[in-house]
Computed example of a mutant assay.
Amino acid sequence: MVLSLAVIGVLVGAIYFFIPHDDSATAEKSAVQTVDTRVEIITARRAAPYPVAAPEGLPKGWRPTSVSYKASNDGKGGAWHLGMLDPEQQYAAVEQSDAPAKQFIQDVTLGTDKIEGQQAVGSKKWDRYQGDTYKALVHEEPGVTTVVTGTAPYGRLAELAAALVAKKG
């Protein structure tokens, strides 16, 4: 048994040594692909029954990594998603829907709970949510709930929320 473990150890060591890998910070940054969001934003703004919020004028270093709009069959509950990495490589996402707010918030924030205090973002007050994995800022308006959520700190989430411009296409 010891001989078998030694052979496996040598094999694993050889594989690690001879197979190229890059552990640098640039490798981590390039591991997640950046996506072009222009077409999806235009399409979502035309299809959604609410003004779709997308960031404009974010500082350099923010990168969009995922984007989607899923319409519902009944015209209610359409969901907009824009996932991003902030300059420190933390995840932040814009989530919007006209579905019932309580369930939508729980789904997109991975079960966070509302906490005390609000975050001022421009002229609006956003509710704060905190969970084991995600933090979130939530703004409810008639007909649409906007959630900015992710692993990024509240300051970065507020920076993303402040850059949001809601438009109907």
Rank of each mutant, 00 (worst) to 15 (best):
1 M>I: 07
4 S>K: 01
4 S>A: 15
6 A>W: 06
7 V>I: 15
7 V>H: 00
8 I>P: 01
12 V>T: 12
16 Y>W: 14
17 F>I: 06
17 F>K: 14
19 I>G: 01
20 P>Q: 08
21 H>P: 00
22 D>W: 13
22 D>Y: 13
23 D>N: 15
23 D>A: 15
23 D>P: 00
24 S>R: 14
27 A>M: 12
30 S>P: 00
31 A>F: 08
32 V>M: 12
33 Q>N: 08
35 V>T: 13
37 T>E: 01
39 V>E: 15
41 I>C: 06
44 A>I: 11
46 R>Q: 10
46 R>V: 04
49 P>H: 09
50 Y>L: 08
50 Y>A: 06
50 Y>F: 15
51 P>Q: 06
56 E>G: 01
56 E>D: 07
57 G>H: 07
57 G>P: 13
59 P>C: 13
59 P>L: 14
62 W>G: 04
64 P>V: 02
66 S>Y: 14
67 V>F: 02
69 Y>G: 01
70 K>N: 07
70 K>Q: 11
70 K>H: 07
71 A>E: 14
71 A>K: 13
73 N>T: 12
73 N>V: 09
73 N>Q: 11
75 G>N: 04
75 G>D: 05
75 G>F: 04
77 G>M: 09
77 G>L: 09
79 A>G: 00
82 L>E: 03
82 L>R: 09
85 L>W: 02
87 P>R: 06
89 Q>N: 14
90 Q>K: 10
94 V>N: 00
98 D>Y: 11
100 P>G: 13
100 P>K: 12
101 A>N: 06
101 A>Y: 02
102 K>R: 13
103 Q>T: 14
110 L>R: 06
113 D>S: 15
115 I>E: 10
115 I>Y: 03
115 I>A: 13
115 I>N: 14
117 G>P: 10
120 A>H: 11
121 V>P: 05
124 K>F: 10
125 K>M: 11
126 W>A: 07
128 R>K: 15
128 R>C: 02
128 R>A: 02
128 R>T: 06
129 Y>Q: 08
130 Q>L: 13
133 T>I: 14
133 T>C: 01
135 K>T: 09
136 A>H: 02
138 V>M: 03
141 E>I: 00
141 E>C: 01
141 E>Y: 03
143 G>I: 05
145 T>R: 11
146 T>D: 01
146 T>W: 05
147 V>L: 03
148 V>G: 01
149 T>S: 12
151 T>K: 09
152 A>G: 04
157 L>S: 04
159 E>C: 09
161 A>R: 02
162 A>C: 04
162 A>Y: 02
164 L>E: 02
166 A>W: 06
168 K>Q: 10
